[in-house]
Design a protein around this nucleic acid. Sequence first.
DNA 1: TGCCAGGCCCTCTTTAGGGCCTT
Length: 204
Amino acid sequence: MHNNADSLIVLDFETSGLSPDNGDRAIEIGAVKIEHGIITDKFQSLMNPGFRINSFIENYTGITNQMLQNAPSCHEVMLDFATFIGSNNLLAHNASFDQKFLDAEFEHINQRYSGEFACSLLVSRRININAPNHQLGTLVNYKNIASDGSFHRALFDAEMTAKLWLSMLEDIQRQINQNQVSFDLIQKIAKTAKKNVPALLANW
DNA sequence: TGCCAGGCCCTCTTTAGGGCCTT
Protein backbone atom coordinates (compact mmCIF):
# COMPACT_ATOMS: atom_id res chain seq x y z
CA MET A 1 0.00 0.00 0.00
CA HIS A 2 1.40 3.34 -1.07
CA ASN A 3 0.37 6.45 0.83
CA ASN A 4 1.24 9.38 -1.40
CA ALA A 5 1.88 12.52 0.66
CA ASP A 6 1.13 14.73 -2.35
CA SER A 7 -2.23 13.21 -3.27
CA LEU A 8 -5.46 13.64 -1.44
CA ILE A 9 -9.12 12.64 -1.61
CA VAL A 10 -11.49 15.50 -0.84
CA LEU A 11 -14.90 14.17 0.11
CA ASP A 12 -18.34 15.36 1.11
CA PHE A 13 -21.40 13.43 2.27
CA GLU A 14 -25.02 14.43 2.08
CA THR A 15 -26.85 12.55 4.81
CA SER A 16 -30.30 11.98 6.26
CA GLY A 17 -29.34 13.90 9.40
CA LEU A 18 -26.52 14.87 11.71
CA SER A 19 -25.67 11.68 13.53
CA PRO A 20 -25.15 8.07 12.48
CA ASP A 21 -25.60 7.23 16.16
CA ASN A 22 -29.24 8.25 15.72
CA GLY A 23 -29.65 6.01 12.69
CA ASP A 24 -28.81 8.59 10.05
CA ARG A 25 -27.25 7.33 6.84
CA ALA A 26 -25.39 8.78 3.89
CA ILE A 27 -27.59 9.59 0.87
CA GLU A 28 -24.89 10.97 -1.46
CA ILE A 29 -21.12 10.89 -1.69
CA GLY A 30 -19.03 13.27 -3.77
CA ALA A 31 -15.26 13.31 -3.92
CA VAL A 32 -12.37 14.55 -5.99
CA LYS A 33 -8.76 13.43 -6.10
CA ILE A 34 -6.01 16.03 -5.92
CA GLU A 35 -2.60 15.07 -7.24
CA HIS A 36 0.28 17.56 -7.14
CA GLY A 37 -2.16 20.44 -6.71
CA ILE A 38 -4.50 19.47 -9.56
CA ILE A 39 -7.93 17.79 -9.49
CA THR A 40 -7.40 14.60 -11.49
CA ASP A 41 -10.40 12.41 -10.73
CA LYS A 42 -13.91 12.52 -9.32
CA PHE A 43 -16.50 10.24 -7.74
CA GLN A 44 -20.21 10.90 -7.25
CA SER A 45 -23.23 8.79 -6.43
CA LEU A 46 -26.58 9.02 -4.73
CA MET A 47 -27.29 6.07 -2.45
CA ASN A 48 -30.53 4.63 -1.15
CA PRO A 49 -30.45 4.54 2.67
CA GLY A 50 -33.39 2.11 2.85
CA PHE A 51 -35.83 4.59 4.38
CA ARG A 52 -37.52 7.88 3.49
CA ILE A 53 -35.65 11.09 4.23
CA ASN A 54 -37.52 13.98 5.83
CA SER A 55 -38.61 17.16 4.08
CA PHE A 56 -35.92 19.27 5.73
CA ILE A 57 -33.22 17.17 4.09
CA GLU A 58 -35.07 17.16 0.76
CA ASN A 59 -35.20 20.96 0.82
CA TYR A 60 -31.69 21.41 2.19
CA THR A 61 -30.00 19.19 -0.38
CA GLY A 62 -32.43 19.13 -3.28
CA ILE A 63 -32.18 15.33 -3.10
CA THR A 64 -35.69 13.84 -3.09
CA ASN A 65 -37.05 10.50 -2.01
CA GLN A 66 -37.94 9.93 -5.64
CA MET A 67 -34.31 10.40 -6.63
CA LEU A 68 -33.17 7.96 -3.95
CA GLN A 69 -35.76 5.33 -4.85
CA ASN A 70 -33.79 4.08 -7.83
CA ALA A 71 -30.32 4.83 -6.45
CA PRO A 72 -27.94 1.99 -5.65
CA SER A 73 -27.69 0.94 -2.00
CA CYS A 74 -25.23 2.47 0.46
CA HIS A 75 -23.53 -0.93 0.54
CA GLU A 76 -22.92 -0.98 -3.20
CA VAL A 77 -21.77 2.65 -3.44
CA MET A 78 -19.46 2.53 -0.45
CA LEU A 79 -17.71 -0.56 -1.77
CA ASP A 80 -16.91 1.38 -4.94
CA PHE A 81 -15.89 4.39 -2.88
CA ALA A 82 -13.49 2.29 -0.81
CA THR A 83 -11.72 1.41 -4.05
CA PHE A 84 -11.70 5.07 -5.09
CA ILE A 85 -10.03 6.37 -1.93
CA GLY A 86 -7.53 3.50 -1.69
CA SER A 87 -4.82 4.43 0.80
CA ASN A 88 -4.91 8.16 0.09
CA ASN A 89 -5.17 10.78 2.78
CA LEU A 90 -8.53 12.45 3.18
CA LEU A 91 -9.84 15.97 3.54
CA ALA A 92 -13.27 17.43 4.28
CA HIS A 93 -14.78 20.71 5.44
CA ASN A 94 -15.57 20.07 9.09
CA ALA A 95 -13.92 16.68 8.76
CA SER A 96 -15.24 15.37 12.06
CA PHE A 97 -18.70 15.19 10.46
CA ASP A 98 -17.69 13.37 7.28
CA GLN A 99 -15.28 11.13 9.15
CA LYS A 100 -18.10 10.08 11.47
CA PHE A 101 -20.25 9.04 8.50
CA LEU A 102 -17.39 7.42 6.58
CA ASP A 103 -16.55 5.36 9.65
CA ALA A 104 -20.20 4.36 10.12
CA GLU A 105 -20.78 3.46 6.46
CA PHE A 106 -17.53 1.51 6.27
CA GLU A 107 -18.47 -0.33 9.43
CA HIS A 108 -21.68 -1.46 7.71
CA ILE A 109 -19.67 -3.06 4.90
CA ASN A 110 -16.72 -4.17 7.01
CA GLN A 111 -14.24 -1.93 5.19
CA ARG A 112 -11.26 0.02 6.53
CA TYR A 113 -9.32 2.98 5.23
CA SER A 114 -5.73 3.79 6.06
CA GLY A 115 -5.49 7.48 5.14
CA GLU A 116 -5.59 10.28 7.68
CA PHE A 117 -8.13 13.11 7.77
CA ALA A 118 -7.33 16.80 7.52
CA CYS A 119 -9.94 19.52 8.04
CA SER A 120 -10.26 22.62 5.85
CA LEU A 121 -12.53 24.29 8.41
CA LEU A 122 -9.96 24.14 11.19
CA VAL A 123 -7.19 25.43 8.94
CA SER A 124 -9.45 28.21 7.66
CA ARG A 125 -10.05 29.43 11.19
CA ARG A 126 -6.28 29.91 11.47
CA ILE A 127 -5.65 31.34 8.02
CA ASN A 128 -8.75 33.37 7.12
CA ILE A 129 -9.01 35.21 10.38
CA ASN A 130 -10.94 38.08 8.78
CA ALA A 131 -13.58 35.92 7.07
CA PRO A 132 -17.15 36.70 8.19
CA ASN A 133 -17.51 33.03 9.15
CA HIS A 134 -16.08 29.70 8.06
CA GLN A 135 -19.01 28.07 6.32
CA LEU A 136 -17.94 26.55 3.00
CA GLY A 137 -20.11 28.89 0.90
CA THR A 138 -18.88 31.97 2.71
CA LEU A 139 -15.24 30.98 2.28
CA VAL A 140 -15.69 30.27 -1.44
CA ASN A 141 -17.00 33.83 -1.87
CA TYR A 142 -14.36 35.26 0.46
CA LYS A 143 -11.57 33.64 -1.58
CA ASN A 144 -13.17 34.62 -4.91
CA ILE A 145 -13.38 31.01 -6.03
CA ALA A 146 -15.53 30.56 -9.15
CA SER A 147 -18.81 28.87 -8.26
CA ASP A 148 -22.23 28.38 -9.81
CA GLY A 149 -23.77 28.30 -6.36
CA SER A 150 -24.97 24.67 -6.29
CA PHE A 151 -24.02 24.13 -2.67
CA HIS A 152 -25.28 21.22 -0.59
CA ARG A 153 -24.71 18.64 -3.29
CA ALA A 154 -21.87 16.30 -2.53
CA LEU A 155 -19.66 16.57 -5.63
CA PHE A 156 -20.02 20.34 -5.84
CA ASP A 157 -19.15 20.82 -2.19
CA ALA A 158 -16.19 18.44 -2.54
CA GLU A 159 -14.91 20.41 -5.55
CA MET A 160 -15.31 23.70 -3.70
CA THR A 161 -13.54 22.30 -0.65
CA ALA A 162 -10.69 21.14 -2.87
CA LYS A 163 -10.33 24.58 -4.46
CA LEU A 164 -10.52 26.27 -1.08
CA TRP A 165 -7.81 23.96 0.21
CA LEU A 166 -5.48 24.64 -2.72
CA SER A 167 -6.10 28.35 -2.29
CA MET A 168 -5.22 28.19 1.39
CA LEU A 169 -2.06 26.21 0.62
CA GLU A 170 -1.01 28.97 -1.78
CA ASP A 171 -1.70 31.61 0.85
CA ILE A 172 0.33 29.78 3.45
CA GLN A 173 3.20 29.17 1.01
CA ARG A 174 3.20 32.85 0.02
CA GLN A 175 3.27 33.94 3.63
CA ILE A 176 6.10 31.52 4.36
CA ASN A 177 8.07 32.88 1.40
CA GLN A 178 7.55 36.40 2.70
CA ASN A 179 8.47 35.38 6.23
CA GLN A 180 5.03 36.47 7.40
CA VAL A 181 4.19 33.24 9.15
CA SER A 182 5.09 33.03 12.78
CA PHE A 183 6.30 29.79 14.27
CA ASP A 184 3.36 30.07 16.62
CA LEU A 185 0.90 30.08 13.69
CA ILE A 186 2.59 27.14 12.04
CA GLN A 187 2.35 25.22 15.27
CA LYS A 188 -1.32 26.13 15.62
CA ILE A 189 -2.11 25.08 12.05
CA ALA A 190 -0.29 21.80 12.49
CA LYS A 191 -2.12 21.20 15.73
CA THR A 192 -5.60 22.14 14.52
CA ALA A 193 -5.21 20.19 11.31
CA LYS A 194 -4.44 17.24 13.54
CA LYS A 195 -1.80 14.71 12.70
CA ASN A 196 -1.76 15.26 9.02
CA VAL A 197 -1.88 18.12 6.59
CA PRO A 198 -0.74 16.38 3.41
CA ALA A 199 1.31 18.44 0.98
CA LEU A 200 1.27 21.28 3.49
CA LEU A 201 3.52 19.91 6.18
CA ALA A 202 5.71 18.58 3.39
CA ASN A 203 6.67 22.16 2.64
CA TRP A 204 7.79 22.95 6.16
C1' DT B 1 -44.03 11.76 25.94
C1' DG B 2 -39.84 13.45 25.22
C1' DC B 3 -35.71 12.78 23.78
C1' DC B 4 -32.88 14.48 19.32
C1' DA B 5 -24.55 15.10 17.74
C1' DG B 6 -20.12 15.90 18.67
C1' DG B 7 -15.40 17.70 17.95
C1' DC B 8 -12.90 21.83 18.26
C1' DC B 9 -11.81 26.32 19.90
C1' DC B 10 -12.08 30.45 22.83
C1' DT B 11 -12.29 32.25 27.26
C1' DC B 12 -14.70 35.58 32.12
C1' DT B 13 -10.49 28.06 31.45
C1' DT B 14 -8.45 23.43 33.26
C1' DT B 15 -13.41 21.49 39.40
C1' DA B 16 -16.65 24.70 32.41
C1' DG B 17 -19.67 26.78 29.31
C1' DG B 18 -20.96 28.18 24.93
C1' DG B 19 -20.57 29.07 19.86
C1' DC B 20 -19.40 27.25 15.41
C1' DC B 21 -19.78 23.88 11.58
C1' DT B 22 -21.42 19.76 9.21
C1' DT B 23 -26.87 17.30 7.35
